[in-house]
Structure formats: structure tokens, C-alpha cells
């Protein structure tokens, strides 16, 4: 079975929500991946929509790139609403 392609499975649990990664399946083709994903990840109405994506089509950030990619956003507190203090009289904004 290992010679079958690996597919990553994403499930939208409810209308209006994002698809979320739930796991992976092996399959001979995309159609079979879809069927396997349905059987494996939505046996208890966990989803209303499924995506299957060949695992080797995903480009992932490397763990040693973590600092390069994500540290620059750490010192930019002014990007958060809570940075801007307003007088109470202004009310909810």
C-alpha cells in the first residue's frame, strides 16, 4: 500500500468554517483518496466538505526557518488593536 500516493485530508466541519487538516490517506488516485477520506474521517458527520491534496504538492516551511519567518512579527505590537488606548468615554470600538 505504501506505493500508493499519500494524500493530506482537509475537512470543513460546518458551513461557514475553514477546511482544517485532519490527517492523511493512501490511495491509487484522487477519487479513491476522497472515498477513503470520507470513510476514515467523517464516520460521525464530522464534515460537510472534504479536500484531498497529494502530500508531495505541499510546500512547508522548515522548522529551522521559524525565526526568520515569524520573529519579525513579534515586536510589532502596534499591529494589534489592544495597542491603542482610548478613553473610556469613547465606548466600545
Amino acid at each position: 500500500m505504501s506505493e500508493w500516493r499519500l494524500y493530506e485530508v482537509f475537512v470543513r466541519s460546518k458551513h461557514g468554517l475553514n477546511h482544517k487538516h485532519v490527517g492523511s490517506v493512501h490511495a491509487a488516485d484522487a477519487e479513491m483518496a476522497m472515498e477513503n477520506a470520507r470513510d476514515l474521517y467523517t464516520r460521525r458527520s464530522e464534515g460537510v466538505s472534504i479536500w484531498v491534496v497529494p502530500s508531495d504538492s505541499i510546500t512547508a516551511s522548515a522548522s529551522d526557518e521559524k525565526e526568520v519567518l515569524f520573529d519579525p512579527s513579534e515586536d510589532k505590537v502596534y499591529r494589534h488593536a489592544s495597542f491603542y488606548k482610548l478613553p473610556d468615554e469613547v465606548g466600545h470600538m
Partner: peptide
């Protein structure tokens, strides 16, 4: 199947 998938992330081969 969930577990075999988790095992494969470690570079192990399912058939083996």
C-alpha cells in the same frame, strides 16, 4: 489507519 499515518511521519514504511 490513524496510527499507521502517524508512524509514517517518522519515515517508517507501512508495508515494511
Amino acid at each position: 489507519l490513524y496510527l499507521y499515518s502517524a508512524m509514517e511521519t517518522l519515515g517508517a514504511d507501512r508495508d515494511e
